[in-house]
């Protein structure tokens, strides 16, 4: 068997209890109800871009907070959600992990809430995957391997608030990139001399949709 090994409930519980021993017994609660598990050290963030930023050539306004190991975990999750396949590149090759770092490093309220959640999530995920993401001896390839294996084997990702929010940011980050937009079928943002409306094919398709819904005929 070459596919991912599905973890038994017993193995999952063992991982969680191992993490609980490491972090004061709150991991089970974190995994189960997705509430934050424990306080993380306060993170110093920069200033916002203010009320009159240069819209044409915005600079990088605030420093990034993720260390290389933490960023590697995010990169793994990015490519777990959107790996390269025949219809598109991987999320990390579009640098979505760097967008996540930018996002959670920002000083604004939504981003600050996400920062708290995702930093705790990185802590939890790395502990559950038994990899170190801080300190001197970070093994990028081991992080990639072990975190990927954990994600593929973990049965209850939907119950993890940090994963669900991180996944939402990854999807948003990818599909607001030029590559993601194009992949999704966006053909706009090109100057046109006139607007001709829906293409003939789209018009016929809409007319058919109205007919199927029992709505008045569209000509």
């Amino acid at each position: 068997m070459t596919g991912p090994v599905l973890l038994s409930r017993r193995t999952t519980l063992r991982w969680i209890s191992a993490f609980a021993a490491l972090h004061g017994g709150e991991a089970a609660a974190f995994a189960a109800d997705a509430s934050p598990a424990r306080a993380i050290a306060p993170v110093k963030v920069g200033e916002g871009y203010g009320l009159d930023p240069n819209l044409l050539e915005p600079k990088q306004f605030w420093p990034r907070i993720l260390g290389p190991g933490q960023l590697q975990v995010i990169e793994v999750v990015c490519d777990f959600v959107l790996p390269a396949d025949g219809s598109g590149p991987s999320a990390s090759s579009v640098r979505v992990h760097e967008f996540i770092d930018e996002w959670i490093s920002a000083p604004y309220p939504i981003q600050s809430a996400d920062r708290d959640l995702i930093l705790k999530g990185i802590d939890w995920l790395s502990a559950a995957s038994n990899v170190a993401v801080t300190g001197a001896a970070i093994d990028q390839s081991r992080i990639r391997h072990e975190v990927t294996r954990f994600l593929e084997e973990y049965r209850d990702l939907k119950t993890l608030a940090f994963y669900m929010r991180l996944r939402q940011l990854i999807v948003g980050g990818y599909y607001t990139s030029d590559i993601g937009l194009s992949e999704m079928g966006y053909t706009g943002n090109v100057p046109l001399q006139s607007y001709e409306g829906a293409s003939a094919e789209a018009r016929a398709w809409i007319a058919k949709a109205a007919q199927l819904l029992g709505l008045p005929e569209i000509r």
């Binding site: 916002g48 871009y49 203010g50 915005p58 990088q60 930018e102 996002w103 920002a106």
Partner: peptide, 12 residues
């Protein structure tokens, strides 16, 4: 992609 935070709304 040309903007911070993918041009999302912020208090600023």
């Amino acid at each position: 992609g040309d903007a911070p935070l993918r041009a999302e709304a912020t208090p600023d």
